[in-house]
Amino acid sequence: MTIIVTGGAGFLGARLIAALLADGADRIVSLDRVACPVDDARVTSLIGSIDDPAAVAQAFQGGADIVYHLAAVLSGQSEQDFDTGLHINVDATRLILEECRKQARPPRFVFTSSLAVFGGEMPDIVPPTMVLMPQSSYGCGKAIGELLVSEYSRKGFVDGLTVRLPTICVRPGAPNSAASSFVSGIIREPVAGQASECPVPLDTRLWISSPGVAVDNLVRAGRIPADDLGLSRVMDMPGITATPAQMLDSLEKLVGAGARARVALTRDPRIEAIVCSWPGAFDVTRARALGFGADSDFDAILRQFLADR
């Protein structure tokens, strides 16, 4: 079985590749702008951009049974650079789908979308039938991508599944261009003894998943039989609802008051306009019935991060 992972050199992509290898994958192709950090003879690391037809064609040279499309321009950069955001998040997604269309057998196509496809007035718990109303360029691009995956699935070009991931927390490493980067930053930096800022109100509801659970759910998304998916090829992934205040309570309890004191509340209207338009809870009954998992609470997420450091 050959699996292609776009964005395979990134934090989530590299973890997914490691999990797929542990699950018995025969051959994995990573396509990213830098080399994949996973050192394994079964991994082919291609350095290139997902908007380059030659690079995409090279990734598919050995065929594809499953394609995980993770690569994207993140929310902050998409908002600042409209053209690049739509080009990578929409045009390049269609380029990859067209390459899938050339395959002898339609591959399973797992597209990672975002809760940023929602906006406007929403109920406390968002149902699976909620109308999309993105309030950011990133959310718009992801919504278009969802429709493309559903249409290519309807036509039989791919066996697609869009998974809307929660905000992943806690991400190691440096902050990135995502508007949600602070969600990890208000934990990661204080644990490392560094100052951090929370740019949104402390009572903002956030839909969160640990990296481990998110990766397990992505592996599951590649395996689940098409007959179990039915007509709808879009699914909100399970998560937990947590506010920055609750996250900081956990930080104080598990790390100490000194760590919490390193976080300053510094409102940023630009970040607030994006993040506060996102829903804070979802009805994930269907996903849970299909075997997708969730963390128990934020204490468990923080304990996982502390254990992995």
Rank of each mutant, 00 (worst) to 15 (best):
G119F: 07
R205F: 10
A14N: 03
T243H: 06
M235D: 04
V67R: 07
A307V: 05
F157I: 06
S49G: 15
I125S: 03
K102Q: 10
G8C: 08
I301Q: 07
E98F: 10
R42P: 00
E272H: 08
C100H: 04
S250E: 15
F182D: 00
V29M: 03
D299R: 06
N89R: 05
V275Y: 11
K142D: 02
I4V: 04
A35G: 14
A54L: 14
A25W: 11
P106W: 02
F282W: 12
D32V: 08
V234T: 11
L302C: 05
G230N: 07
T2L: 12
G193T: 02
L70M: 15
H69S: 13
T84M: 13
G62E: 12
G120N: 06
R267S: 10
L265Y: 07
Q80S: 15
T241R: 14
I3R: 10
G7R: 09
C36N: 05
A307Q: 13
M237D: 01
G291C: 13
A294E: 07
R303W: 09
V56Q: 06
Q80C: 11
D308F: 10
I208M: 09
G120P: 01
V284Q: 01
A54M: 12
P134G: 04
S113C: 04
V275P: 00
V73P: 00
E189Q: 15
L254M: 14
D91P: 04
D91E: 14
A287Y: 09
R171W: 12
D227W: 08
A289V: 05
L206V: 03
F109N: 06
C276A: 15
L70A: 05
V43I: 04
C36D: 00
S45Q: 03
G63S: 03
L306N: 05
S49D: 15
S137N: 14
Y152C: 00
T84E: 14
T243G: 01
E99G: 08
L132I: 09
T6D: 03
R164I: 07
W278L: 13
R260E: 07
I274L: 09
A9H: 02
A214F: 07
R94Q: 15
Q135I: 06
G7N: 04
P201D: 02
A179S: 13
S49P: 03
A71K: 09
F111T: 00
R15G: 09
M133Q: 15
F157K: 11
I50R: 01
S277N: 06
T129M: 10
R220W: 07
F282M: 13
K142Y: 11
L306P: 02
V234P: 00
A242W: 11
L115N: 14
S30G: 06
V191C: 07
L161M: 05
G291Q: 12
L115D: 11
G85D: 00
G173C: 10
V149H: 03
K155T: 08
H87C: 14
I3Y: 12
L31D: 01
L265H: 12
P134V: 00
A259Q: 06
G291D: 05
A257V: 13
R94D: 03
F157W: 15
G119H: 05
A245W: 12
D216R: 14
E272S: 11
A273F: 08
E79L: 14
C36R: 13
I4N: 03
I3W: 11
K142T: 01
G173T: 10
Y68I: 05
Y68H: 04
T93C: 04
M247K: 06
D159G: 05
